[in-house]
């Protein structure tokens, strides 16, 4: 009986949600709608796409939006990830000390050799993704996640290996600091935080986009070290 009633309630809530959301404009219709609404016929998405290439000389418009027009949000998002990693470390602190020493089986030779062979390749892919963030899809977040998956492989495959947490922490701090300082230089030079103060170069060239690739490299290092830190914390705790 109780199950039926809760199911019924769930259905009512779901129907309410569906009714509410059915009226919300999305996709092509939403874009048309918003174009009609916003003053001066400006749709910001469209505006970014049409002018972004000229303004930042950054072939990947998504990157241009993420790091320039809405770069301040990205700074906040990087901070959120930083907080999550730190918070996990703070909560797990003290629990690791009591954990028993390495009791896991030694991995077989094939496994550990395979992991070691793959690791540099994964690193290469990750670094490629964030260095080319302004040219091709992907960027700091994606590249950082790929790098962290490389460290995950090492954690799983070669169990004796421990990551150097001091180095990870230093990479985390310094890359975060680099992001803020790059943004502050813009404030000092041109009076606006995150201003793209470097020469933007030619579109589609590796050295283009001004500070955008630099910031993406900082984000890549930061995200990579943070996610690796999370994995290191958790895998250290498992043992």
């Amino acid at each position: 009986m109780r199950k039926q009633i809760s199911l019924l309630l769930l259905l009512i809530v779901a129907a309410g949600f569906a009714l509410c959301l059915a009226g919300a404009p999305f996709g092509a219709e939403g874009a048309r709608e918003s174009r009609r609404l916003v003053k001066d016929n400006v749709n910001y998405g469209r505006r970014y796409v049409s002018k972004g290439l000229d303004e930042n000389r950054c072939a990947n418009i998504v990157t241009s939006v993420v790091l320039n027009y809405r770069g301040f949000d990205t700074l906040g998002e990087v901070t959120i990830l930083f907080i999550a990693a730190l918070g996990l470390g703070a909560v797990l602190y003290g629990r690791r000390a009591g954990a028993s020493p390495d009791e896991a089986q030694r991995p077989s030779l094939i496994l550990s050799t395979g992991c070691r062979l793959l690791f540099p390749l994964i690193m290469l892919v990750g670094i490629y993704i964030f260095i080319h963030g302004h040219l091709s899809p992907g960027g700091g977040f994606q590249g950082g996640a790929v790098i962290a998956s490389g460290f995950l492989l090492i954690c799983l495959g070669c169990r004796k290996k421990k990551l150097n947490s001091v180095a990870l922490g230093a990479a985390e701090s310094l890359s975060g600091l680099a992001f803020v300082l790059l943004a502050l230089i813009g404030l000092a030079v041109g009076g606006s935080f995150l201003l793209n103060f470097l020469p933007t170069g030619k579109v589609y060239a590796l050295f283009s986009g001004g500070i955008i690739p630099l910031i993406y490299i900082a984000i890549g290092v930061k995200v990579g070290s943070e996610l690796s830190g999370i994995i290191d914390n958790l895998s250290g705790e498992v043992r």
Binding site: F72, D73, G76, E77, I80, I83, G87, A90, V91, R95
Partner: peptide, 24 residues
């Protein structure tokens, strides 16, 4: 900015979750 409000709100919330559990 509304989305920026959300981002900073998350910065605030997530650090307070971690600090509440700080003692472990």
């Amino acid at each position: 900015d509304l989305f920026n409000l959300f981002v900073f709100f998350e910065v605030l919330c997530i650090s307070s979750y971690a600090l509440v559990a700080y003692r472990g």
